[in-house]
Amino acid sequence: MTILDSTASGLAAAAEPAAAEAADEHAINTGELASWFQITPLMIILALFFGLPMLVVLAVSFFDFDRSDIIPAFIFDNYTDLFRSEVTLRLYLSSLKFAAIVWAVTLILGFNIAYFLVFHVRSLLWQIGLFLICTVPFLTSNIIRMISWIPFLGRNGIFNQALEGAGIVNQPLEFLLFSDFAVVVAYVHLFTLFMVVPIFNSMARIDKSLLEAARDAGAGRFRVVAEIVLPLSKTGIALGSIFVVTLVMGDSFVVRTMSGGQSASVVSALQNEVAALQYPPAAASAIIMVIIVTLMVAGILRLVDVRKELAG
């Protein structure tokens, strides 16, 4: 590359001075003020409908209770009971296990679906069409979607009948319904779209010529994905992960329905307490849950700066 030597001076002369404008303080102050005004409505709503209830829950978590009443107090019994109980750990492990499995499955599915939509479907019309098909399950309620799995996966359900009819199995598969398997299937069905959408968004912003440039440089299909697409979809993956993880951690209905009551989640246990009018322990459990989920989200945000995606 010695030939470039003589070119260098010419090329350097062509370089413009680096754009380094001194910040105008006045302008920034005005901008900041405007930003505060813009977020005020949301801040008020969050303070009223999220902040305040959380404070109430926090306060109640220190209350005492008996069979019929909650008694204002400041005791730590609800927390110590929670931490002493073996059930707590088992519930959290179970919820975390579901979160991990569902996260992995929806990530793989979501990444591939988004990749297909963005890079293989060339026409915008088809892209929109297929995208809408992804949202079809959302046209009906969660409950109906859950219940419709039952005749499909049940002991004498369509799937088992098909397997038997095809001679693949002699006896109906028992693990299909009312099992951890069924819970994961339902979660994946419910939450994959939450992974697809943010990943689709970040992928759609990738300049297609980047992929060609990588191929030009000798990258094969998998290298292109690993070196270019994956790093540039990171923010979408992070956002999708936040959705999926928080949704799974906060769920009780799917676990209860699809496991046939055999599995429980942190929230379903909490609901039982509420049903038994044991509000203070339920509040303590909720506070711990909020802290743990917040830590998980904070962990994801530490790994990936999602502001870039949201700002775009």
């Binding site: 010529s209 440039a213 440089a217 000798g218 070196e227 790093p231």
Partner: peptide
């Protein structure tokens, strides 16, 4: 033939530099 086997290199209109 794949791009590298052709002995060609391409400079893209928007340069297509990898932003990350």
């Amino acid at each position: 033939l794949p791009q590298i086997k052709r002995g060609t290199a391409m400079m893209f209109q928007s340069y297509a530099l990898f932003p990350h």
